[in-house]
């Protein structure tokens, strides 16, 4: 059994977890980093169908709200899945609706399309399961420029569940948490 060093998501301490593949922690980190960099380029180059192919058939694309709550009630800040009105709660079909409409030339929120730049980093491998499933967390900055002078800067983090499939990775569950309460953008017709 190969053992890699990862950061436990709850305690933020280093733990050792077995992996199904013969990868060191460093190899896994490097491979995932490359995966996320490739993903960011697909988004910024508007290759949305190729981007969607990085997800599994049973994907969940989830973005909860972020509430203002007192620090002692921090457990209420991010409403858990299934309890609230999130910004995104999408399966593959709904993601396909969102992407197909971009192909139509009549998705006015993105016509002409935004200029985006996703910077993804701070990769932490949180957990590796017996079957090779990886739980990973990344931080991102995304700048959006639209039309003549509309701009928005999004920052946040993503927690992914990834599976090794045919020599690459597929994301089955993505949770995106923005660092914002009132979204300072006219609409959110881009992806993270």
């Amino acid at each position: 059994m190969v053992v890699v060093t990862v950061i436990d998501r709850d305690t933020q301490s280093e733990v050792f977890a077995p992996t199904a593949s013969a990868k060191s922690a460093q190899e896994l980190w490097t491979e995932l980093n490359a995966f996320y960099i490739a993903e960011a380029w697909l988004l910024d180059e508007r290759k949305l169908h190729e981007w969607l192919d990085m997800f599994t058939e049973d994907l969940l694309y989830f973005m909860p709200r972020r509430k203002n709550v007192p620090s002692r009630e921090a457990d209420r800040e991010i409403p858990p899945y299934g309890t609230d009105l999130p910004f995104f709660d999408e399966d593959r079909k709904m993601m396909l609706v969102r992407i197909q409409r971009m192909d139509s030339g009549m998705a006015w929120a993105e016509e002409p399309p935004s200029r985006t730049r996703h910077l993804v980093g701070n990769l932490v491998v949180q957990r590796v399961e017996e079957d090779g499933t990886v739980h990973a967390k990344t931080a991102f900055l995304c700048h959006r420029s639209h039309a003549e002078y509309d701009t928005a800067l999004y920052s946040g983090y993503r927690e992914d569940v990834l599976h090794p499939v045919d020599g690459t990775w597929k994301i089955s569950r993505r949770t995106i948490v923005l660092d914002v309460n009132v979204v300072l953008d006219k609409n959110m017709a881009i992806f993270f």
């Binding site: 910004f87 709660d89 929120a109």
Partner: peptide, 25 residues
Amino acid sequence: QREVLRVHTARNGVTGHFEADDVDN
């Protein structure tokens, strides 16, 4: 109830694929 919330999330609101196309008009 869950389906109602999912539809509300998908169509309208800041991420709604219907509402997104209104704002520039």
